[in-house]
């Protein structure tokens, strides 16, 4: 009997997870379908671009500069074991633009943006503002979800690009001032070794992560439970789901872009 109960519990957990994946996929499909059909709410899109993109710059920039700096120290220490200190500029640059820039940028945006979107839309749901939108002939998917998802998909690659540049600068500052590397050689090494696809792949990852972050925020906000506890749970679930999906999709995208 215990074995059957265990199998039943496992089965029900797997079914629950598959149902959740299905609901998120349907929500994503609806979002894309509304993205392509009018009406479009340009003012809401502009506001989302500012709150998601512009106001995330400080946190993404700070994350990038410290990450680039720590990366330079680590690679210098590791490289010195086999006299390869000269690889610091190229590995910092490639590491930042391919992986750390998009992933850490995406995670910081997930913490900042997925939580705020889920809390805002969740509160709107529990105070009947979403129902009010419907009665005022306004589709909540078009008015709330589409502008946020589109803004995040466009803004996060820009944040990643800025983060990449700041991260490389962090590595440069540590490399030149702390490790005594030659300034001109550092810069020329960085430029010489970086290829177009290194940068472009990171920006594509940024767009995917932006889409995931806003989608998760909107999905959990729209499906928030009642009361303060419901909104709290929705906010937590949005950040956790966005973070896990960013890391999982990062692996899949890396396989897709770079596996030979």
């Amino acid at each position: 009997m215990i074995v059957i109960r265990l199998i039943a519990a496992l089965g029900s957990a797997v079914l629950g997870m598959l149902a959740a994946v299905g609901r998120v996929a349907l929500f994503a499909g609806q979002t894309i379908s509304h993205l392509l059909r009018p009406p479009f709410y340009f003012k809401e899109f502009g506001q989302s671009l500012i709150t998601i993109g512009y106001f995330s710059l400080p946190v993404v920039g700070l994350t990038a500069i410290f990450t680039g700096a720590a990366l330079a120290l680590q690679i210098y220490e590791g490289g010195s074991r086999f006299n390869a200190e000269s690889v610091v500029p190229s590995i910092v640059a490639i590491g930042m633009v391919r992986e750390l820039g998009p992933v850490l940028g995406g995670l910081m945006v997930a913490a900042r943006v997925a939580s705020s979107i889920a809390a805002e839309i969740g509160t709107m749901k529990v105070t009947e503002q979403i129902d009010a939108l419907v009665t005022l002939s306004t589709n909540p998917m078009k008015y709330l979800t589409v502008p946020r998802v589109l803004a995040a998909t466009l803004a996060v690659p820009v944040l990643v690009a800025v983060g990449d540049a700041i991260g490389i600068m962090g590595g440069y500052l540590v490399g030149v001032n702390r490790l005594g590397l030659n300034s001109a050689a550092y810069l020329s090494n960085t430029v010489d070794f970086l290829e177009f696809w290194d940068i472009a792949s990171g920006l594509v990852k940024g767009a995917v992560f932006g889409f995931i972050v806003a989608l998760m925020g909107c999905y959990y906000g729209m499906n928030s439970g009642r009361g303060a506890q419901g909104v709290g749970r929705a906010t937590k679930a949005a950040v956790v789901a966005a973070s896990v999906m960013i890391l999982a999709s990062n692996y899949l995208l890396t396989e897709l872009f770079f596996s030979a």
Binding site: M124, T127, E128, Q129, D131, A132, V134, T135, L136, S137
Partner: peptide
């Protein structure tokens, strides 16, 4: 849209944006 345009509703908590 045409159907809802004929309705007005006052919500319990106001539901103001």
């Amino acid at each position: 849209d045409a159907f809802l345009a004929r309705f007005g509703m006052l919500f319990q908590g106001g539901a103001l944006f």
